[in-house]
């Protein structure tokens, strides 16, 4: 069965695509999907650490986006808008997954067993080398192995590049809680990646 056939050239840029969406042009939503679904899916899988749940979030994000276009004010790009919807959807999933362990229910100090153990320098230099597929898989596993409370903060701050304040608002946390969690997530991920780095 052939995949969806959408002519991307119908919309030359984001403005034209948006105009198409507002006209309820049937191809416009399909085009929106084609252009932004890979980004949204990647974000969802990072936040959730689960491919099936991420696919559900992907679908809900686009259905919501296309049905709520009238709430899009065009101040941020379409990509940022979709990112925000996807992030909220993913956070809702995380809360449903463990309703008793709220996203704000976690010790806020560095535990003793979180002190760095692996103290070998890395030869891998991300400023000059790209990740190979093996290292990428290691990173994805390490992210998925983090507790959701730490992972979501790390994804929003260090991967998506939100500020401390934006992350705090998105998660309903204090800024100091965001800082502590980011720090703990970094230490844990560093440790997990270091295990691989010192063997290569």
């Amino acid at each position: 069965m052939p995949g969806p056939t959408i002519d991307l050239t119908v919309y030359e840029n984001e403005e034209a695509l948006l105009a198409g969406l507002r006209r309820r042009d049937p191809d416009a939503c399909a085009c929106l999907i084609k252009r932004f679904a890979p980004l949204v899916y990647a974000q969802a899988i990072r936040l959730l650490g689960d491919a099936d749940e991420a696919e559900g979030v992907l679908q809900q994000t686009f259905i919501k986006a296309c049905d709520k276009l009238d709430t899009y004010e065009g101040r941020s790009g379409l990509g940022s808008w979709l990112y925000r919807i996807a992030t909220n959807e993913a956070l809702m999933h995380l809360r449903q997954r463990s309703p008793r362990v709220g996203l704000d229910d976690l010790a806020e100090t560095i535990q003793e067993d979180e002190m760095p153990q692996r103290l070998t320098p890395w030869t891998f230099d991300p400023t000059t080398a790209a990740l190979n597929s093996e290292l990428r898989a290691i990173l994805e596993q390490a992210l998925a192995a983090l507790p959701a409370t730490l992972r979501v903060v790390f994804v929003l701050r260090d991967i998506q590049g939100l500020s401390t304040e934006e992350t705090a608002v998105a998660l309903g946390l204090s800024e100091s809680a965001v800082k502590v969690r980011l720090h703990r997530a970094r230490l844990r991920l560093r440790e997990m990646l270091a295990a691989y780095m010192q063997e290569h």
């Binding site: 320098p121 890395w122 891998f124 230099d125 991300p126 400023t127 790209a130 990740l131 990173l139 790390f154 260090d158 991967i159 590049g161 970094r186 230490l187 991920l189 560093r190 990646l193 270091a194 780095m197």
Partner: peptide, 11 residues
């Protein structure tokens, strides 16, 4: 190495 981790995930 923490600095490298941050650069790596940002990209």
């Amino acid at each position: 190495t923490t600095q490298r981790l941050i650069v790596l995930v940002h990209d």
